[in-house]
């Protein structure tokens, strides 16, 4: 290990990590939004929309992110839709994640006892109120393990962004290895920086799961 090399390249990795974090978390936020909306729409069996969302989920769950990104970034410009690499990154991540999040939230919603819904309805709440005040809060606590697992999965998936020439951690590592051949140092830094991104999420997720388990009742 050459510590000089390491200390010199830390700032480069830091910038790359910020980009990875930025795109990663925008993607996660988009995925959560898409997931929630589509889970609710599919749950209520809203005509047309629920079919569209079901098709979307099947397509994005069964294709790799790398291919989705290639399609967004290299293929769409040919039919006149130009999207910048960064937007492609979080859009792709959000679309992929949305399909996974939707499944996670839906299983949470389905886990809520029908009694809860019926009691709320008999108290005169509307369908929408029941969803917002009764079903979703409980469903979210049920879906937490899957939700956290999906966040980790999505943040890990950011490593393919280098394929569409985003200067993320992977890109930086590959670039530096090619330039200076200090493979061991650059790979070690790569591992350390991914740990910085993912370890807090993993630890927080475990804590959150333990806390929220108390929230689920009625079983």
């Amino acid at each position: 290990m050459d510590w000089n090399v390491i200390s010199k390249s830390i700032p480069l990795y830091w910038d790359a990590m910020l980009l990875t974090l930025k795109i990663g978390w925008i993607g996660v936020a988009l995925a959560t939004l898409i997931g929630l909306v589509s889970a609710v729409i599919i749950h209520f069996r809203i005509p047309v929309l629920s079919v569209i969302f079901k098709i979307y989920i099947e397509i994005f769950r069964n294709t790799p992110l790398l291919i989705q990104l290639f399609f967004l970034y290299f293929a769409l410009p040919k039919i006149g839709i130009k999207i910048s690499a960064e937007v492609c990154g979080w859009l792709g991540l959000g679309l992929l994640g949305g399909s996974y999040m939707s499944e996670a939230f839906r299983s949470g919603i389905e886990a809520i006892d029908i009694v809860q819904r019926e009691s709320a309805l008999s108290l005169g709440m509307t369908d929408f109120q029941v969803m917002i005040h009764i079903v979703l809060p409980q469903a979210l606590s049920y879906s937490t393990p899957a939700f956290v697992a999906n966040i980790i999965f999505l943040l890990k998936e950011t490593s393919v962004f280098s394929a569409i020439s985003l200067m993320d951690l992977m890109f930086r590592a590959k670039d530096l290895i090619g330039l200076y051949y200090n493979t061991a140092e650059y790979l070690a830094l790569l591992v350390v920086f991914y740990l910085i991104i993912l370890l807090p999420v993993s630890v927080l997720g475990t804590v959150l799961e333990r806390r929220l388990r108390y929230a689920s009742f009625g079983t």
């Binding site: 890990k156 490593s159 061991a184 790979l187 790569l190 993993s202």
Partner: peptide, 23 residues
């Protein structure tokens, strides 16, 4: 389990493909 869960597969690929050659 934790290593596998936290490290992106891409990083593992790089470690095994480039790392083992070097080290």
């Amino acid at each position: 389990l934790e290593i596998v869960r936290i490290m992106p597969q891409m990083v593992l690929l790089f470690l095994v493909f480039f790392g083992t050659t070097r080290v």
